[in-house]
């Protein structure tokens, strides 16, 4: 077993514990328990999330030391790195915005898609292409991580808007603000996501110009990233100008996230071209 795998499993274990506690916290059956009423369980969720982020950071560091470069290339590395950054940013939001805490029951299972995916992959060493020495890679990837984490936070709230159409959803998210506020908060995350998405595209274009001699070439990943940006812009125009029912609002956010998800974890691996770094 390679060095990073035990840390990865431990980190995912901590995320799993956080998920279970978050689900326990919203379940109406336990609503009468003092620990739930006082929302003390949220500290446990926060603690397990922080533990997970720390353990995943160790996993990434171990792998970095083992193969000599950061988590930039293979799908295994990308998923591990995203699990860490999504967890880190969600921890910050969870800590600073208690109103969105119950939405962890939507956010954490989405992260579990990545968590269960990474466990199916081989942690084989990857090759670090010469074009990845460029400093803009850090800017591009860092901004992309913030963008995806903001979208994920928006998805959590979008899920709340949709699930609240059911009785069970209303009971689960009884401690959250009204739909107006949840919707507004979700779209504020979308606004910030648009800023970081735009910055990510700019930094990516600068990197592409240096690395491959063109700033934009409609390669599959670029096209997919542009479509995500466009869909986000369309969503924001609709939300700011028309009356959008909460369910539609939620579905629009989930649609943007799904496209972004496909861009991150699909497009780079169906194209053998530049973005995979093999040229």
């Amino acid at each position: 077993m390679v060095a990073e795998v035990p840390w990865l499993w431990s980190g995912l274990g901590a995320y799993f514990a956080a998920t279970l506690i978050a689900i326990w916290g919203v379940a109406p059956r336990f609503a009468g328990m003092p620990v739930i009423q006082n929302r003390r369980h949220e500290y446990a969720v926060l603690a397990f999330l922080m533990l997970g982020v720390t353990l995943l950071a160790v996993a990434i560091a171990e792998r970095w030391l083992r193969i000599g470069h950061g988590p930039w290339i293979s799908l295994f590395e990308l998923l591990m790195s995203q699990l860490w950054s999504l967890g880190l940013i969600f921890v910050l939001l969870y800590w600073r915005l208690p109103g969105l805490r119950p939405s962890a029951v939507i956010v954490l299972p989405v992260m579990w898609i990545l968590g269960s995916w990474v466990l199916t992959l081989e942690p084989a060493a990857s090759h670090f292409p010469p074009t990845y020495y460029n400093a803009w890679k850090w800017v591009h990837v860092g901004l992309g991580k913030i963008f995806l984490a903001l979208l994920l936070a928006g998805v959590g709230l979008a899920g709340v808007l949709i699930l609240r159409q059911t009785r069970r959803g209303q009971a689960w998210f009884r401690n959250m603000p009204s739909n107006v506020i949840v919707d507004r908060l979700a779209w504020r995350f979308m606004m910030l996501a648009l800023v970081f998405d735009s910055l990510m595209l700019i930094a990516g274009a600068v990197w592409a110009q240096d690395a491959w001699g063109r700033y934009w070439a409609w390669d599959p990943l670029e096209t997919s990233a542009f479509l995500t940006w466009l869909l986000l812009a369309i969503g924001l125009h609709l939300r700011l100008s028309y009356r959008v029912p909460p369910v539609v609002s939620g579905l629009m956010i989930i649609g943007v996230f799904m496209l972004a998800f496909a861009t991150y974890f699909g497009a780079p691996y169906i194209s053998p071209a530049a973005h995979k770094g093999v040229v």
Binding site: G99, L161, R164, Q165, Q170, A171, F173, R174, N175, M176, P177, S178, N179, V180, I181, V182, D183, R239, L240, S241, Y242, R243, V244, P245, P246, V247
Partner: peptide, 28 residues
């Protein structure tokens, strides 16, 4: 938003027009 400013209520729980909190008796 423009639509909200036009006074149209939002669907769902706790819309501004209803003035209700978020779907249960726990004020936010």
């Amino acid at each position: 938003t423009i639509a909200e400013q036009a006074g149209k209520p939002l669907d769902g729980i706790g819309s501004p027009s209803s003035g209700k909190p978020s779907g249960n008796n726990a004020p936010v």
